[in-house]
Amino acid sequence: MLNLIRRDFIIQKRQLLGFILLVLFFVLMGRHDPAFIFLLASIIIPVNTIAYDEKPETNILLNSLPYTRTEIIASRFLGAIVFIILSTGATSVLMYVFNRPFSITDIAISSSLALLLLSLYLPMSYIIKPGYSSPFALISFLVLAGIVPPIVSYLGERLTSVTDFLLNLPVSIFYTSALLLGIAIYGTSWGVTTLIYRRKVY
């Protein structure tokens, strides 16, 4: 299974420079929230990995290897976590070098959102017709980036009691709760995706 994650990294090694330059572009612009930049960096590689695997011949090859379908899906979900960690580290270095302020909160928010988005995207990528999952991911990301901040702001202004409750929570409890919720959603998505992939015919 670790070899499958390694394979994903090797396949994309020529594109890594392009990914880094894209993140660097947003860092140098200085107009975007640090959490948005971390989120963008976190989901690029996992989404691109799925784009490679959309080809029927790729899945036929994967299924001819000595790995079960459960292990193939496990490599996708574990690989996504590995890539999120590496992307967050690389982005942190870039932001530090170019004196762009960020906080642990930015990283926590972006990582949680990345896991949430991937929890929705990974099972959908095995349902949607091959070739359409990447445009779906791009459009969904742009839509969410455009509508989520205003919605959160609106709800924060209207639901003041909920906002006050969350703000008054100890930081440790808040992050622990968010982490447990993220793990639950990600684990559920993992299980659903495994069931979908087991039944898929190539």
Rank of each mutant, 00 (worst) to 15 (best):
L4D: 02
F174I: 01
G187C: 09
L113A: 11
T188R: 14
I128S: 05
A41W: 01
S177Y: 06
L120E: 06
V162E: 01
F36W: 13
Y132D: 02
R69P: 06
T163E: 11
T163G: 02
P130S: 14
S64T: 15
I85R: 05
P149G: 10
F136T: 09
Y202W: 15
Y126E: 11
S119C: 08
R198P: 11
I127C: 06
S153D: 14
G131H: 09
F174E: 00
W190C: 02
I5H: 03
S75G: 06
D53W: 05
T188N: 14
I107F: 03
L195I: 13
D164K: 05
I151P: 03
A41K: 00
V152Q: 06
G146K: 13
P34F: 02
K13N: 06
I151M: 12
T193N: 00
S111E: 11
G30R: 05
Y175L: 14
M1G: 05
T68E: 08
T194C: 10
Y96Q: 06
N99Y: 14
L195Q: 13
R14T: 14
N48W: 04
I72Q: 06
P150A: 09
T194P: 07
N99F: 08
F26A: 02
N99G: 08
N59V: 10
A137D: 05
T176V: 13
L120K: 09
E71D: 00
D164N: 08
V27G: 00
I20F: 08
L169V: 00
S64R: 07
P66R: 04
L116F: 15
P56R: 10
F83M: 02
G146I: 12
I183V: 15
F38S: 07
L117D: 03
A137C: 07
P56A: 07
V192S: 11
I20M: 09
T160L: 09
N48K: 13
D33W: 04
G191R: 02
I185P: 07
R31C: 03
T88P: 00
R6D: 00
E57R: 14
F36Y: 12
L39T: 14
I72Y: 04
F102D: 01
L116T: 11
S92D: 09
T193H: 01
L142W: 14
R76E: 12
I84Y: 08
W190F: 12
E54Q: 15
L115T: 03
V192C: 12
R158K: 15
S161T: 15
I50D: 03
A145L: 14
I173L: 14
L166H: 04
E57W: 13
L120Q: 11
Y197M: 12
S161K: 07
W190I: 07
L94T: 07
I196T: 11
E71A: 03
L179D: 02
T188H: 15
M95D: 01
S110K: 01
I20C: 06
I10Y: 04
L169I: 01
A108Q: 02
T88Y: 01
F141Y: 15
I173M: 13
R199D: 10
L62E: 05
D53H: 10
L155E: 06
Y154H: 13
M1V: 06
S189R: 13
R14P: 11
V143N: 14
I139T: 10
Y96E: 08
S125Q: 11
S189K: 04
V171P: 01
E157L: 10
P150L: 11
L39K: 08
R76V: 10
A114E: 13
